[in-house]
Design a protein around this nucleic acid. Structure first.
Length: 266
DNA sequence: CTGGTGGGC
DNA sequence: GCCCACCAG
């Protein structure tokens, strides 16, 4: 066997070996994620979900959500983004499916057809590329909200990518995200899916005990992400949701209202 | 990465 | 309903 050929085969085996190991590790992670009531037990840590203003909390394998029937979308979606979830591989986009776990009936994807709005993921598919099952689960309509394409593919996408980079840098983060379902909103489709005027994202770094919140108008912007940082409390007042109830008091004081919270590297 | 449309069977 | 090609920020 020639040396070049040997190294070629060796490289291929190495690549498959690494991906195989990551797949094995991720499957173990999924099995360890026990969900009970309003709590998610993850790696020995009890993670309290946000409060629900709608009374309809649903747990999927990769994320939980609180569904607002009047707005035909989730008021929040919450999940842990582990460092081990980050993956270079990707999966083919499946078709959107109505979430059968929503007892009041989740919105149909047809509301979005020719609406001029994207079917915008709340929990991004890009955060779930560690397995096809987890990836496809993000294509339930309960995880979707109407978004301007420029916003979705613009600054919102930038924030989602920054979140992934923080998960890599800080060894995982917890994420809660959604549209602000308040005030006068446009609707789309027969089921009148509300188009939020603002979107928020709350990110919690459990390892370093720090938290950051973003509030963005529903329009694209070229401004730096740091310009959209707000105190978590401001998002709570706006939405009526309590994020991370058991941690909030201790961390809230530490989070300054400034545009560059300590510890978060932009 | 984030998404869309149109055509064929 | 599903799959494919092709498109844009």
């Amino acid at each position: 066997m020639k040396k070049r050929k040997f190294y070629g085969i060796f490289a291929i085996l190495l690549v498959f070996g690494v991906y195989g190991y990551e797949y094995y590790i991720n499957e173990q992670d999924l099995a360890e994620n026990v969900q009970e009531g309003a709590r998610v037990k993850s790696e020995g840590r009890i993670f309290y979900l946000p409060t629900s203003t709608t009374g309809q909390v649903i747990h999927h394998n990769g994320y939980s959500l609180s569904y607002s029937e009047p707005h035909e979308q989730a008021e929040w979606v919450a999940y842990e983004l582990k460092k081990s979830h980050l993956s270079r591989s990707t999966f083919e986009r499946p078709y959107f499916e109505v979430d059968q776990a929503v007892k009041t009936g989740a919105a149909s994807w047809r509301n979005y057809k020719n609406s001029g709005y994207d079917r915008g993921h709340l929990c991004p598919a890009g955060d779930k590329n560690y397995s096809k099952e987890a990836h496809d689960e993000t294509f339930l309509t309960s995880n979707i909200t109407p978004q301007n394409h420029d916003f979705n593919s613009g600054i919102w996408n930038t924030l989602e990518q920054k979140t992934r980079s923080w998960a890599r840098k800080y060894d995982g983060v917890f994420v809660v995200t959604g549209g602000v379902l308040k005030g006068n909103m446009k609707t789309i489709g027969n089921e009148r899916v509300a188009v939020p005027n603002q979107f928020y994202k709350v990110i919690y770094d459990a390892k370093h005990e720090k938290m950051i919140g973003f509030l963005m108008p529903h329009k694209n912007s070229n401004a730096p992400l740091a310009n959209f940082v707000v105190p978590i409390d401001a998002i709570e007042v706006l939405t009526g949701i309590d994020f991370f109830p058991e941690l909030e008091d201790a961390l809230e004081d530490r989070l300054e209202a400034s545009n560059s919270p300590t510890g978060w590297h932009f």
